[in-house]
């Protein structure tokens, strides 16, 4: 895979409808390479659906390009092989397998069938590097199901790293994490974004203020506002959507969790 030129994500006029209900109504986004973009918005704004559309989980119209590759219309596993990786709101690691096996499987989609037929010997370099990055080197042989909540999320991110995803789409990565875990996750995102593009769906405003490089606010399937954290927070439309009326900037919007 090419590492010399990290690619940006370009979403143009994407629409998704389910049985007549329009969940995403013409969303356009430009996420430059190396960005950490936060997608926020009230429940039902269409954040996860946008990610679903990008990764091929739901049908969409419009255009989604990663680098110079059009993603819409391709099956999920092909999109993944183009370097697009995602996590889900609920942890989806393989709980019955060890941490090492989880990472090894994530690394394996580019391997040939011949290597699949063999047994794993030792720890591949890319897997070792990912273990190091996510801080789970000492737990490589532990069953993934027995990890703490935060560690499971890091394992998810580690799987995206060995998968060689160059665009990471993370759906609420710090939900349910302690403060220390959030800090560690933020630092991890910063490391990861050096040679990758990161898009994060998140409700945690404190986390957003500290780690977002840019923010897109969705509301009712459309882009409401976009810019830096300060710009978005100053936008009266954003405050209205979140709190029902304009308020001072800087207060933490409440009532966002389901």
């Amino acid at each position: 895979m090419n590492d010399d030129r990290p690619d940006g994500l370009s979403v143009r006029d994407v629409r998704v409808s389910f049985d007549g209900f329009t969940a995403v109504d013409g969303v356009s986004l430009e996420v430059p390479a190396g960005d950490i973009r936060f997608l926020i918005g009230p429940n039902g704004a269409g954040k996860t659906t946008v990610v679903d559309a990008i990764t091929g989980l739901v049908r969409a119209t419009g255009s989604v390009c990663f680098g110079d590759q059009e993603l819409l219309g391709r099956p999920v596993h092909r999109i993944s092989r183009l370097g697009v990786g995602r996590t889900f709101q609920t942890s989806t690691i393989f709980e019955e397998l060890s941490v090492l096996q989880n990472l090894d499987i994530a690394a394996g989609a580019r391997r040939g069938w011949a290597s699949l037929a063999r047994r794993r010997r030792g720890i591949p370099d890319d897997v070792a590097a990912a273990l190091e990055t996510i801080g789970l080197t000492g737990r490589a042989d532990q069953l993934a199901g027995t990890l703490a909540h935060g560690q499971k999320q890091w394992l998810e991110i580690g799987m995206l790293l060995v998968q060689d995803a160059r665009l990471l789409l993370l759906d609420e990565p710090v939900a349910g994490m302690s403060h220390e875990e959030r800090d560690a996750t933020g630092a991890l995102l910063e490391t990861v974004s050096r040679d990758r593009t990161v898009v994060v769906i998140e409700h945690d405003m404190d986390f957003l203020r500290r780690f977002a490089r840019s923010v897109t606010v969705l509301h009712a399937g459309r882009v409401l506002s976009e810019g830096t954290v300060a710009q978005v927070q100053a936008d009266p439309r954003v405050q209205e959507v979140y709190l029902g009326h304009p308020v001072e900037t800087g207060s933490v919007p409440s009532g966002l969790e389901a």
Partner: peptide, 12 residues
């Protein structure tokens, strides 16, 4: 969260 203090990722 709980008393579990995980080793934070060595992001540096």
């Amino acid at each position: 969260m709980t008393a579990v203090t995980p080793a934070p990722p060595s992001a540096a």
